[in-house]
Design a binder for these strands. Structure first.
Length: 147
DNA sequence: GCCAACGTTGGC
DNA sequence: GCCAACGTTGGC
């Protein structure tokens, strides 16, 4: 899951203990949260638009998908006039802090690792804020984070 | 259903 | 700040 650290950082998550992942307004990203992410699943926390951008730690899904209440809040920038209460369009999950890596695994670092070539995160032009990680990619990245 | 215009993301 | 990539909107 990606976040700009000046908007919401891993340090903030550590302080908050957990957070609702509000404001996702992309259908593909929503589908991952709504249909794929189960309680207890682990998540990489990625800082985008950062110095450097990269994976900064691990979080865990602490609550499965439920409607994002901001879609009904007229004052919110996440308000969606086309979404109805009895048929909400946008869902989110809660994630809780697990750990922060000792060192950021920057995009550059990740691109050096052959086994990660196929990762959606590293494909050109990808912008999805919530995306899947395979078991092998996960293990390889954890291994790298412990170096 | 096509596609141009426009807005957003995010690396650099 | 630039700009490529890509999603969404809306006219036709």
């Amino acid at each position: 899951m990606k976040s700009e650290p000046n908007v919401y950082s891993i340090d903030q998550l550590k302080e908050d203990k957990f957070t609702p992942w509000e404001g996702v307004r992309n259908y593909q990203a929503r589908n991952f949260m709504r249909d794929e992410m189960k309680k207890g699943d682990l998540v990489f926390f990625y800082h985008s638009n950062a110095e450097p951008s990269g994976i900064v730690g691990v979080a865990e899904v602490s609550r499965e998908a439920y409607p994002d209440s901001f879609q009904f809040d007229k004052k919110s920038k996440y308000f969606d006039s086309k979404s109805q209460r009895d048929n909400p369009r946008w869902y989110l999950v809660d994630i809780q802090f697990k750990k922060k890596f000792k060192k950021v695994l920057s995009l550059g670092d990740l691109k050096q690792i052959k086994e990660l070539d196929g990762m959606p995160l590293l494909q050109r032009g990808q912008r999805l804020s919530v995306q899947p990680v395979s078991e092998t990619e996960w293990k390889r990245i954890i291994e790298e984070s412990q170096k």
